[in-house]
Amino acid sequence: MAEPRQLIGMTVAAQQFGVRIEAVRDILGPQQLAKVPLAPPEIAGVLNLRGRVVTAIDLARRLGIDRDDKRPADQAMNIVVEDRGELYSLLVDRVGVVLTLGAERFEADGSSLPQHWRPLAHGLFRLDDALLVELDIERVLALQPVG
């Protein structure tokens, strides 16, 4: 990784994550969600973004984060990403700033990541005051375990 990467930072249950800025289509405040009964538990619902139906993913659940401060899905921030022509929204607690991160801060080796995050992440960035996990959107959106 020679070029520095631009990531949008986000927080879920006090942990910092990032996705590459190219994948992000929109950042939205809390949205009204329609539930999709019988859907996998990671699916928080569907929402309307300017006439397009966006499927919302509860990122905490997707990452298996067991949180005690259960926050209703319609109070979360939405990071809308595109994958193969479909729009998905990642529900997060807070949206951070755009970070430009150089290769010297990157850990591609997943061994310092919790095991169940490894398949979902590109790697880890060492920030000055925290660690930021760069998510692999394609894998995050593939609900069946990748394998």
Binding site: A34, V36, R84, Y88
Partner: peptide, 27 residues
């Protein structure tokens, strides 16, 4: 009628989704 996202195709109870006049999405 809009097709559901691939991630939801396995849910056989729904054939699609749509946006109503008031802007909300329904299955």
């Amino acid at each position: 009628v809009k097709p559901v996202a691939p991630i939801l195709r396995s849910v056989s109870a729904f054939s699609g989704n749509t946006i109503l006049g008031d802007g909300s999405v329904v299955m």
